[in-house]
């Protein structure tokens, strides 16, 4: 099937090569586009390290096939505003919001979503909304402060 799929990734148009139609978005972003902020912690949708925004909503890039994303906008940490990245990083420094840093991309993406007013019902607590992002170093309490300061 000669389907030309265009993905809008971090504001740029990318024509998805055929070979990537049936492969994971995660691998496309990392291997083809070198967007290394996107991390694979589990590949099973349980850890959130691979979170990207698809049309503004957070999703796990490890459970998305490239071929289902035609014409959609995909944002990784690299595509966030420099302002947001700096601000989040600075708050992390201030509160100790990371240790090994492997979960940080996922939390950065979630923070960007929350900062844009992201919510499921308009009244969720950040605890529930961030429960899909595992931090094995366990700095949730610090991340709570980071998110609170950010919003």
């Amino acid at each position: 099937m000669n389907t030309r799929l265009i993905l809008h990734i971090n504001g740029n148009e990318h024509s998805l090569p055929d070979a990537w139609h049936g492969r994971r978005l995660l691998d496309y972003l990392r291997h083809e586009l070198s967007l290394m902020s996107v991390k694979e912690g589990c590949g099973e949708g349980d850890c959130g390290a691979c979170t990207v925004l698809v049309d503004g909503e957070p999703m796990c890039s490890c459970l998305l096939l490239g071929g289902v994303l035609a014409n959609r906008s995909i944002v990784t940490v690299e595509g966030l505003s420099d302002d947001h990245r700096q601000r989040f990083a600075q708050l992390c420094e201030q509160h100790g919001g990371l240790q090994c840093g492997f979960c940080t991309s996922g939390f950065t993406m979630m923070s960007a979503w929350l900062a844009e007013g992201g919510s499921e019902t308009g009244q969720n607590s950040s605890d529930k909304l961030l429960a899909g992002n595992i931090c094995r170093c366990g700095v949730y309490q610090q991340l709570k402060k980071v998110i609170a300061d950010l919003l």
Binding site: G45, C60, E120
Partner: peptide
């Protein structure tokens, strides 16, 4: 529905 997986999973 709100108990399934995570926000990310629920969006998918």
């Amino acid at each position: 529905a709100q108990l399934v997986g995570s926000v990310q999973i629920r969006n998918q």
